[in-house]
Amino acid sequence: MIGSAQDPEQAPVSREEVEQVALLCRLEIDDGEARELAAQMSAVLSHAAALLSLDTSGVDPTAHPLPLVNVLRTDEVRESLAQGDVLSQAPDVEAGRFRVPPVRRRQPEEP
């Protein structure tokens, strides 16, 4: 049901897309990894080709195998964690808060 590795020339995933996607999901990848990922992702997607071309018009998507609706909680306060327990696992803490480097991307310095 699943064919052999496909022609890289027809790879549906380009290097550029791989780099774009890596940016979205916050992964640093080098050239070698990008090339390898492009090939591997292309291979998986080409195996899904038959699926992608299947006619599913009029078919509702299944987000979930369960028929449940309206699962609700009453608005009652439950005990929170102690601040110490919350912060004890953190890589960096200051004044009861989680400390992180500047949230904006630093532009690389001009040479």
Partner: peptide
Amino acid sequence: CGCKNAFGDEPNTNTCP
């Protein structure tokens, strides 16, 4: 979750998993 919805409390005290 059941953590308090409150303004102005000590930081990271109204938190849970």
